[in-house]
Amino acid sequence: MEDGGGGRRGFAGGLRASLPVVAGYVPAAVAFGVAARGAGLSTAETVLMSLVVYSGASQFAIVGLVAAGGSWLVTAGTALVLGARHVLYGPALAPNLRLRAGGRAALAAFGLTDEVFAVASERLAREPAGFGWLFGLEAGAYVSWAFGSWLGAAAGEAMVGALPVLAPALSFALPALFVALLVAMTTQTGASRSVAGALVAAGTVAAAAYLAGFESWSVPVAGVAGPLAGLVLGRRDDAP
C-alpha cells in the first residue's frame, strides 16, 4: 500500500494519472489560444485568462463575447453561469478523498475542472487518495492548459496552416477522453440497471437541454437527472 496518495509518491501517481487529461487539454488549449488571438487578445492576456479563470467553457464564452463586443457584466455573468456545473464535483469526490477541510482542500478546489473531476471520480471510487495524488493530477492538467494556451496564442495559426488535418484531429481529443472515462467507470461500477439508467438519462437530458438552447445548463441538469434516474431504477431492482 502506498501512502494513501498523500505524499510525494502520491503526487507522482497523480502526475501520471494526468497524462490522458494532458493529451486532451493541449489541443483544446491550442484551439482556445488561436480563438483568443483572433478575438484581439494579446498572448499575455490569453495566458493570463487561462491561469486565472481556468475553465475552458467560460474562457471560450469570454472570448466569443469580447469578440462580439458584449458588455462587461453580460460576459462575466455568462462565464459564471457556465461554471454552475462545478458545484456538483466536490460533494461527489469528498467521501473518497482523504483530505480535511482546510488550506490544502481550498488549494485543491482551484484545479477541480471537468476532466480532473472525471479522472478523479474514476480513480477514487477504486482507491481513495489524498492531497498529494489530487494535487499531482491537477498540476499536470493546469500546466498543460496554460502551456497549450500559450502555444495556441503564439504559434497556433502557423501550426494549423502547416498541417491542416491537425485542427480537426485534435478536436476529437476530449470526446475520446470522455469515452475512455465512461468505459472505465462502468467497468468499475458494473453495468447495473441504475448505472445504465443514469447514463441514458444524463445523455438524453444533456442533449435536450443543449438543443433547446440551454447549453450552459445542460451538464449541471444532467448531473442531477442522471443520478436520480439511476436511483429510481436501482430501487426497483431492490424491490421484493
Binding site: Y89, E122, F178, M185, S218
Partner: peptide
C-alpha cells in the same frame, strides 16, 4: 452516479 452522469453529459456536449 454523479461522476458517470456528468461524464456522459460532457461527452454529449
Amino acid at each position: 452516479l454523479v461522476g458517470p452522469s456528468v461524464v456522459a453529459a460532457l461527452l454529449v456536449t
